[in-house]
Amino acid sequence: MAEAIRLEHVTRRLEGEVPVTLVSDASLRIDGGECVAITGPSGSGKSSLLYLMGLLDLPSEGRVWLGGADTAGYGEVERSEARLRTIGFVFQSHFLLPEFSACENVMLPMRRLGAYDDATIRERARVLLGGLGLEDQRDKGPRQLSGGQSQRVAIARALANDPMLVLADEPTGNLDSVASRNVQRTVLALAHEQGRAVAVVTHDPDFAAQADRRVRIVDGRIQP
């Protein structure tokens, strides 16, 4: 499978009176169809690594290659475009926009992309929600959905523009065991059935065990 994301000796340092190193000399490659679990203790730099992979944050040193392209020269606009077209984010808290229904939340990235007409966007959102078992929930607001349902809506939203890379930051962290298992299956299927590259930050050892590869990070350093 083709390379989706590659980090080369990436360091992220917060400058200040007391400089803090969030990620130190991290190198990592994830290919399409591969699910990589990122584990480690709290505050070890897992989420920071994910934000660097998702071009939300810029490395202090090192390079990030997305789909074979060096992102070092990307400005804010290019990084946003890359996120819109090639990256899908799922967070621990579902982060659905409360003023929009489930379906409308899923439609948002497609509307921003502007590649489809309204009818197509709505139909694609319905298909995505249907694929995650949320056919009947699409017109409900986020407050009317359970935690597991909301997280699956967030996954549908992350898949809206058919990204090659899905970054999930503790997607099961706030869910009960049943909902957690459903979300785990969904996330794994993104890699194994849909061929996407998936990076999952998780504290759950069972979830991590199901991934194709585990990367452990301690004090910002990827452990050998």
Binding site: E76, E81, A82, F95
Partner: peptide
């Protein structure tokens, strides 16, 4: 703030 962050993560630009 949180919605702004998630919109930016989705690919919305600062000018959006």
């Amino acid at each position: 703030q949180r919605d702004i962050a998630i919109l930016r993560a989705m690919g919305f630009q600062a000018r959006d």
